[in-house]
Design a protein around this nucleic acid. Structure first.
Lengths: 200, 200
DNA sequence: CTACCTTTGTGAAGATTTTCACAAGCCGAC
DNA sequence: GTCGGCTTGTGAAAATCTTCACAAAGGTAG
């Protein structure tokens, strides 16, 4: 999040930013900003603030965004389409090297700039190209089995959009996005205005 | 999350579930399950576990899912399309009553089962139909201005997909989903295998 | 060079969340 | 009945996270 706003400031040509300013932009507190950044090192100058350009570069380095990452998308549905077309991914160095589906109607057809491939060839492709990241946009029922397959093929990080709990071995990183659950959280907040403010 | 798995168990006809079983399904601990549920009441029977069907109903009630919620989608792009077609929303009682865009090429054209409307008519529609929830799937630069508009029109909850910080008055609920940031988290985990396990 | 204003970095304090551990209660068997 | 095996609900302890508050340090003006 800090990177997101530091890049804005850098584009605007701002030289330095105080923890106070970053906190306002990110919706947090100055103390939080300082503690967070201090985890990775001592980047600021007392009396001045943080050097925007330098800190931006440093955060990109810490996050591993100075290189390109190959990504496969599994499931050529609407969610996959939204992700593939999302400019933010490309800008951040994520390169979609393949889109896979199991449905015969989709296989072989063009899809954005890529062509949908048969999911049968996924393992071989991932192994050959050494792809580290997979985005999972398939139905819940198939999700865990697919995860087991791609983990065996060498995938080391998974972004999961199936609304189900996924198990991965400890060396594999997993993030899940569950849009229905987010909406349900809003429903809860609307239904219980008082409680929800204390539960967040 | 508990609801998600309780519904599965209920469909399978399972009568009761222990905190141990729920914890395994949800990827948490039995103590956590019991504390979480105890916040809302005392639903279990000692020696037996929680009554699946009854607890399911109770959680749906707590979450406000026993009614229908009108939702407008703002931004007729790929993300909006993915959401509109997402069966999970309908199943949970979220009814998409309108899709809005500002681009003249999209306005008036069919889009799923709805027709894309001019964003100029958004305020009037929201006021007339008393729509409580908006999904924001537009570029970051326009997001805050749009939020201010729809809040003024009476929207009380917002699900934001723009990768930017949004400010809302205290009576409005906000959830943000930032897919680029999720992927960056994975990049960080791949780059710093040791640290990331301690930072999560 | 000094006085003063600003802002970081960080131990310590405070707040919150998670885990522990066990009494209380339910069930079935005998 | 009552015994024994389970499982909840919950205070208390432990762990974690956030905020406070202030010494240390950079900058600037005179």
């Amino acid at each position: 999040m800090y990177l997101r706003y530091l890049e804005d400031l850098d584009t605007k040509g701002q030289q330095t930013a105080s923890s106070d300013e970053l906190a306002h932009l990110c919706g947090t507190t100055p103390a939080q900003v300082r503690k967070d950044l201090s985890f990775f090192g001592s980047f600021g100058k007392r009396g001045l603030g943080y050097p925007v350009h330098e800190l931006t570069a440093r955060l990109r380095e810490i996050l591993g965004l100075e290189r390109e990452w190959k990504v496969v998308i599994i499931g050529a549905g609407k969610i996959g389409a939204a992700l593939a077309n999302y400019r933010g991914f490309w800008q951040r160095g994520f390169r979609i090297v393949g889109v896979y589906d199991k449905s015969a109607e989709k296989i072989g057809h063009p899809w954005g700039e890529a062509i949908v491939r048969d999911i049968q060839s996924l393992e071989a492709d991932v192994l050959r190209e050494d792809v580290p990241i997979a985005v999972l946009a398939i139905p819940s029922d198939d999700a865990q089995a697919m995860v087991d397959r791609i983990v065996k093929a060498g995938i080391r990080a998974i972004l999961n959009f199936a609304p189900t709990q996924i198990m991965v071995p400890p060396h594999v990183s997993l993030k899940s996005v569950n849009m229905a659950m987010e909406l349900e959280g809003l429903s809860f907040a609307l239904t219980n205005p008082v409680i929800s403010s204390s539960v967040a």
